[in-house]
Design a protein around this nucleic acid. Sequence first.
DNA 1: GCAAAAGTGTTAACTGTACACCCATGA
DNA 2: TCATGGGTGTACAGTTAACACTTTTGC
Lengths: 265, 265
Amino acid sequence: MNVSNLHYVIFIFFLILDMIEQSGRNLNKGISADCVIFGFDFEKIQVLLIERNPVHSQKPEYALPGDLIYDDENLDHAAGRVLKELTGLTDIFLEQLGAFGDPNRLDKDADQKWLKTVRSNPDVRVITVAYFALVNLRSFNPRPSHFARNVVWKPLNEIRELAFDHLEILNSAKKRLKTNLDLRPIGFNLLPEKFTLTQLHKLYEAIQGKEIDKRNFRRKMAKLKIVERLNDKQRGVPHKPSNYYCFNLENYNKLVEEGFNNFGF
Amino acid sequence: MNVSNLHYVIFIFFLILDMIEQSGRNLNKGISADCVIFGFDFEKIQVLLIERNPVHSQKPEYALPGDLIYDDENLDHAAGRVLKELTGLTDIFLEQLGAFGDPNRLDKDADQKWLKTVRSNPDVRVITVAYFALVNLRSFNPRPSHFARNVVWKPLNEIRELAFDHLEILNSAKKRLKTNLDLRPIGFNLLPEKFTLTQLHKLYEAIQGKEIDKRNFRRKMAKLKIVERLNDKQRGVPHKPSNYYCFNLENYNKLVEEGFNNFGF
DNA sequence: GCAAAAGTGTTAACTGTACACCCATGA
DNA sequence: TCATGGGTGTACAGTTAACACTTTTGC
């Protein structure tokens, strides 16, 4: 059995576990959990979207991944389940954004047509609880799930249109990401365990949407001591290799205890 | 007809208007809106709670005001309705905190007993969307409503216990109030239109839970130009009368446009 | 004239910001 | 040796933080 076969077997194994776990449970038809999943490719912030088969038009339509919740399931768990189905990842940064529940949020024509193909009660009012998640783009390959045949990364700044009220949810997540970055070192969730200061710097610029002076950025990071220099550098790059760093959680916790809260630029 | 009679007639008039507006609508049995309503008495932050008649015990039990939403009603509107029923106020600062939906959030013994007396389906799972509101304590007298016979102000720092998961919601609101105060001049919603700098100063201290130097506080307020000195001072106080000020929205908007966002101390 | 809260300035430490050049590597 | 991005220091401006006394009023 080769490695690829093994992956397949493991995948099926977990699928069966999920089926066992979920058998005999009732869906709550009035409440869903949708996830805004952010990733970073060292250039731009990306968002994980599901591609919806266009019912009549030719151009593809996109939506945030989400699913109805089970009636005995708490909200955070439902969001974690969506995330796990699409990414295979657990233990990921995941926080609630809020509830979105306009009575007519599902009423757009294209949305209704699509709902009729996937839900047993397309007319019932659904309130969604939105989450935002931060993941390291390189740590997995998006995979299809029962609510999504195709899963794709889209650059955050190029998304102009989404199904339902998902654009509103996305904008809310974008704002939250930006304001939170000044309050706590949330950005490290978007990077691999070891990273270069240039990658971290670009991440801050991408989220803030503005240039930050390289020397000032590095000085502040050094002063805060929330990154730790590793004895390891890039290899095979056609320029001076960059040193790797990792996030130092203990030093961050110390800062918080002291009441420090300005992580912005 | 005297003033007190007139108030009564007006109250009944609006009650009838509400009944007409709500007749023929269906309640959504699975979703409620709860409000954390903060007020400030120039000394402490207060929270508006409803008093629940204890079913078996003698000590009174308190809960956040809230109600099931109507099926054709959006979430913000439902929260506004709760606020209006209790306070008579509209156009109040009101923002969503998030959804709270543990499957067992209604399962505490005392809560179940109480629910059986007021709801037709006490066993159904209810997810609540929590809001926080900021009001000027002096601008109204709390009044009973269809979901609350007694309404009382309680000092925020003395609340140790609430029905359901309301203590969790309250703590979330408390945190939100505190962190938001550094980002925007949210505190003015807790004061009357004209106020003294000492009142504003005490408000900041009450929310931040720490002392702030009087001179530094006043200097920063003066520099920001978000308060405007009025030609009016306290009268009849047994000490130097304090000048009144009002909030200057235009100057605040100017600051925001310039990208300024540090309103903290 | 006394009690009570209002109102006011200065200094030192720190933080943020602007800015330009040398370094290590692969090709 | 050249192209590429990595890495560093200094000076000035603005902000924060600590601190004590005089003023105005009612009684």
